[in-house]
Amino acid sequence: MTATYTFDVFSTLDGFANHNGDWGGYWGKQGPEFLAHRAAAHRDPFRMVLGAKTYASNAPFLRAGFDRSRFDEWITRMFASPVTVLSRRLTEPLGWPGTTIEAGDPLEVVSRLKAESDVPLRSHGSLTLNRALLNAGLVDTVEVTVFPVLSGKTGVDRVFAGVDDFDLELLEARTFDGHTQVLTYRPARHG
């Protein structure tokens, strides 16, 4: 059995994955329906796959003594899941319990994980890694959460910059709290 791999990413309508402005988390657009959806999507067992940069950005929240009670339920579940970090520069032990480092070629590592894992693989963010995996045909689903904002001045990191051409089969489209779209696609290389 082959495990599925989901590239899960948050985006503005104009395609930015994050910002350097005063928007706050979720660009200030989270609502109870959306947060309940995220918690449900992270309820069943899964393995996170992260690049070194995304791991490093989350590492401060994992140190001893950090108050995790403020996290949304889905983030708590993400931090409790087993994690594979793809990195040639990080070394073990890492502060995130259940985390292993794979220093090999990311395409080979993810191919092996898909063949060996008994739970789905999921990656949140990790843009550079997931662009390469998408281009290599290793991403089974792309789940884009589109927040109703344009961040042309403060937007950072275009979600799909540098990816090849893909046709996207829409598997599911849902609206939460009257304004946030979660779109799930199956990618297929165009042409």
Rank of each mutant, 00 (worst) to 15 (best):
G104C: 05
T145P: 12
D118R: 08
L134Y: 15
T154M: 05
L134W: 14
R189H: 15
R70L: 11
L170C: 11
L170V: 12
A64V: 13
P97K: 00
G125C: 10
S87E: 02
G125R: 02
T91W: 02
S11W: 10
A39T: 09
D118V: 08
D67F: 08
V156F: 13
T154K: 02
A80Y: 13
P106Y: 05
V156I: 14
G162M: 08
T128P: 06
A64D: 14
S87H: 02
A80E: 15
L94D: 06
P120M: 04
P93H: 01
L94F: 12
P148H: 12
E92R: 01
P93Q: 00
V149L: 15
L113F: 10
V119N: 05
V83R: 12
D67P: 11
S87R: 00
L134R: 10
L121A: 02
G28H: 01
D118K: 07
K114L: 08
W74T: 03
R43T: 03
A161H: 06
A136C: 07
V159P: 04
H42M: 15
V49C: 13
A3N: 01
A132T: 06
V139Q: 15
T76N: 07
N135C: 06
H42G: 06
G95D: 15
E73G: 05
T12I: 09
H42I: 12
F176L: 04
T100A: 14
P93V: 01
T84I: 11
D67Y: 08
G21P: 10
V139E: 14
A64F: 10
D165H: 00
T175Q: 01
M1R: 01
V85C: 07
Q30V: 07
A115F: 03
P120E: 00
L121Q: 05
G98H: 12
Y185S: 09
L168Y: 10
I75D: 01
V119L: 11
P187H: 12
A161G: 04
V156S: 08
V149I: 13
L171N: 02
L138D: 09
A136R: 00
T141D: 10
A40V: 02
R68W: 12
F7Y: 15
Q181V: 11
D105R: 01
P32R: 02
V109Y: 10
L50I: 14
S123F: 14
P45E: 07
R112L: 11
L90Q: 02
D177T: 00
R122N: 07
L113S: 06
H42F: 15
A3D: 01
M1A: 12
S117K: 07
T76D: 07
T84L: 12
F176H: 07
I75S: 00
L134H: 13
R68T: 13
R112A: 13
F71I: 00
V159Y: 09
G65F: 13
E143N: 10
P45K: 03
T91V: 09
E143M: 14
S126K: 09
R174A: 06
L170T: 05
R70V: 14
E169W: 01
V144G: 08
F10L: 13
V159W: 12
G178N: 11
W27C: 11
D72Q: 04
L134K: 08
L127W: 07
R189G: 11
L134E: 14
P60Y: 05
R158Q: 11
K53C: 13
G31A: 03
G25A: 12
W74R: 02
A56K: 06
T2F: 10
L86G: 10
P97G: 00
R88F: 09
G65M: 10
V110M: 09
A59P: 09
